[in-house]
Design a protein around this nucleic acid. Sequence first.
DNA 1: AATTCAAGCAACTAAAGGGTTGCATATCGT
DNA 2: ACGATATGCAACCCTTTAGTTGCTTGAATT
Lengths: 100, 100
Amino acid sequence: MFAALGDPTRLALVTKLCAGGPSSIARLTDGAGVSRQAVSKHLRALSAAELVRCTRLGREQIYELEPRRLEAARQCLERISHEWDLALGRLEAFVEAADS
Amino acid sequence: MFAALGDPTRLALVTKLCAGGPSSIARLTDGAGVSRQAVSKHLRALSAAELVRCTRLGREQIYELEPRRLEAARQCLERISHEWDLALGRLEAFVEAADS
DNA sequence: AATTCAAGCAACTAAAGGGTTGCATATCGT
DNA sequence: ACGATATGCAACCCTTTAGTTGCTTGAATT
């Protein structure tokens, strides 16, 4: 998942979907600074990571954030965040021990 | 930062530093499954992302988590997590609107 | 039926990334 | 001083990946 979000273009796409809601490839391509195929590939990558879902609507392909997986990812982030908190706590303890 | 954590080896390194506290390259290499050079490179990458800091101690190079930056990263994760929360809320609203 | 617009597929290029090996350097212990 | 140890540096390889272009398919529109 970190890998999926590691690419700036993909992160921008997620942000865009976050802000603008579901939209087609063409619309997502707008302002992305890369070709439509590039965007399409990235969306497929995000789809493979299950961060995003797509449904066909007429001749358009509508991409949207995947709620379930996204919620899981969110919880994962919080877990890591929490672990880091603990680690930071230990680091402080270290420093204090060194001072004394 | 996502990119920095996107590689499994690097994520493992961070986890290890998280669990075991500051340690040398040699110790971090232990059980990493790749060569010392590889580990060294990854640590430099993490260092470039400022997720990690290193200080020389005799002939050893001691790497440790970077508290300040890590705290910033943690807050960033929480912010994103929060934004996703909002987005998920909007998605639900969407669905309900579609149902009605 | 003809045109237009959204997207897919395939082939290709260029660059980055992860990995290794070999050799050099500096420090520690004896 | 000497051998062992911890690391750095450089060159190289291989795979992945981000990106492009050209052509095709299929639905909308008129």
